[in-house]
């Protein structure tokens, strides 16, 4: 009897701690909404497409940051995807296990390096490099800007996409490969006509997951993007992302509507990453169903 009672207590304890996880997520969303209310009330939906960010006049619009975030994230994805795909194919189709393990370990190491260290390296290595390149191409030599941020992002998201893509490629049945080889296909033809089509939705899932990472990345971006609150006209110009403007201005926000506007940017970022993560999950769910049959 005594143990039945303890069992019940234990069950209730674990259930409430599970509920705490749920409460944290829901509470977070509610808190963000409440804190952004003054800004939502003052600017309405035009907050999302107004380009004016003027703390002095108390006018706030988030478009420059939304554009900055999307532009840098998609460019990073565009740069990064060939490499994550190539690395995955190398690991799955070419390398002997020992070399493969070493390369996989090193790629995962990229994910272990803290964002702020990427930022430090970006400031002192990548920014001067990009500046030199911009001078060579007769562009204004900012060094900092959307392009530099995208480069850093591309490196940072690579391990996330690679780990997913590698896993789905390893799920491609060996029999399919052997069948193609038996028909006289070259290694490239096996990859091109057997492996890649089979792993297509997994590759998509890995890419979307990497996109989710890129959208929320803060520190490294903040340190190399130049922090200018104007709508991006060229990717080489300094700009700001949603995450970087919050990082820069949150502790300096003097008026309550200013602070509230920054929180609303956080809310928008939260919703966007939520949607992207749900998309990634839908793709992997579908993948599981396909492979389960």
């Amino acid at each position: 009897m005594e143990s039945a009672k303890t069992d019940k207590i234990f069950e209730i304890l674990t259930r409430s701690l599970g509920s705490l996880v749920l409460a944290t997520a829901m509470g977070g969303f509610i808190t963000l909404t409440i804190l952004s209310w003054p800004s939502i009330k003052a600017f309405g939906p035009s907050f999302l497409w107004s380009t004016r960010w003027d703390p002095v006049q108390g006018q706030f619009g988030a478009l420059p940051f939304i554009v900055g975030t999307l532009a840098t994230s998609f460019l990073a994805l565009f740069i990064s995807t060939p490499f994550s795909l190539g690395t995955s194919l190398f690991l799955a189709e070419y390398s002997p296990p020992k070399i493969g393990n070493a390369v996989a370990f090193l790629v995962e190491l990229l994910a272990a390096i803290p964002s702020v260290i990427y930022g430090l390296w970006g400031i002192f290595f990548l920014v001067p490099l990009v500046r030199k390149m911009e001078m060579a191409f007769n562009l204004p030599p900012y060094g900092v800007g959307g392009f530099t941020a995208s480069l850093i992002l591309a490196i940072m998201i690579l391990p996330y996409a690679t780990s997913v893509i590698r896993e789905v490629i390893s799920l491609v049945p060996q029999e399919l490969r052997e069948g193609a080889y038996a028909l006289g296909a070259t290694r490239w033809e096996v990859m091109r006509y057997v492996v890649l089509p089979y792993a297509r939705s997994g590759i998509l899932a890995g890419t979307v997951l990497a996109l989710g990472r890129a959208l929320g990345e803060t520190m490294a971006i903040t340190m190399v993007i130049g922090n200018r609150n104007e709508l991006l006209r060229s990717i080489f110009e300094p700009t700001n992302t949603m995450a970087s403007v919050i990082a820069n201005e949150f502790t300096e926000a003097t008026s309550s509507v200013y602070l509230s506007s920054l929180v609303e940017i956080g809310l928008v970022l939260f919703v966007i990453t939520l949607v992207v993560n749900i998309l990634a999950r839908m793709v992997t769910e579908r993948l599981k169903m396909e492979k389960g049959e």
Partner: peptide
Amino acid sequence: LLQGTPSIVIGIM
């Protein structure tokens, strides 16, 4: 959802 939330947003919370 929490795992996918940007850390800066968690800072705001």
